[in-house]
Simulated scan of single mutants.
Amino acid sequence: LTTTELALRKPRSPEHYRELLGDVHASAQQMNQIVERLLTLARLDAGVDRLRIQSVDVAALAQQCADVVRPLAEARGLTLTVKNGSAAVNGAGGDGAGLVHTDPDKLREIVSNLLHNAIQYNRPGGAIDLRVARRDGTLEVEVQDTGIGIAAEARERIFERFYRADPSRGGDDLHAGLGLAIVKEYIDLMDGSIAVESTEGQGSTFRVRLPAG
């Protein structure tokens, strides 16, 4: 039986109705996100999704993305840290990201999807670091987590549509295996690159490099 069918079968207490409505709302949100991602991929396939370059405060954008997902991270017992500038990528001496000419909507989608992925495949008490820096005309974005890691044989496929490195967690995945596919296709559209380092049982690091303009 679906949640709505359960609610309609017999009278229930207001508290129980609220609980069932919460389940319906969560399911509707999940379906809406899946549909939005399918439409995004359809636009990319049709070649109608264009870059809209603007001057973007990347540090502020990164902080906004982190603030949106922070409640979800904290609900899972995770700490989320945002770093900008010289402490950013690999501890090397990059500059603060500052203003960069790029597509803010696509950059926001890239960062948000990587953060959601880091939350999804982390463990209670784990940590996530989001780092941004500008170096040699390149914007560098790094998301590092202390999660379950990715098996070597799965790393070649994680950017495929509908692929999940850990199918057992599929029920919690709001993106239906589409989030990283969109990340990769947006990065390709922006003439950038993405690399993944991961150790099973220790965590993963996703590094994105985009033209800074």
Rank of each mutant, 00 (worst) to 15 (best):
R161M: 13
T146N: 03
V56T: 14
R76N: 11
L107N: 04
Q63K: 10
R155F: 05
G126F: 07
V132G: 14
Q64V: 09
L107W: 01
G147P: 03
E153P: 03
G91K: 13
G77Y: 00
L99M: 13
H101G: 10
A60C: 00
N122D: 10
I158Q: 05
N90R: 08
L107K: 00
N90S: 11
D145S: 03
V100F: 01
T146W: 01
D57T: 02
A60Y: 03
T146R: 04
L78M: 14
R131V: 01
A118H: 02
V56Y: 02
V82N: 12
I148F: 00
F159K: 08
N113Q: 09
R131I: 04
E153M: 13
N122W: 02
A88W: 06
G171Y: 02
R108A: 15
E74F: 06
G85M: 06
P71D: 14
V100K: 04
N122G: 05
A75Q: 15
E109T: 15
Q64Y: 04
P71Q: 11
V143R: 06
S112V: 02
A165N: 03
D57N: 15
L130N: 01
G125R: 04
P167D: 12
A75I: 07
L114I: 08
N84C: 05
L78W: 03
N122F: 00
G77H: 05
K106L: 14
T146E: 05
H101F: 01
L115Q: 06
G171R: 06
A59I: 00
I158C: 02
D95T: 01
G77V: 09
G125V: 03
F162S: 12
Q144V: 05
G126D: 00
E109Y: 06
F159T: 02
L72R: 13
R76H: 11
E156Q: 15
A60G: 09
K83S: 09
H101I: 00
E153L: 12
L78R: 09
G171K: 06
Q144W: 01
R164Y: 09
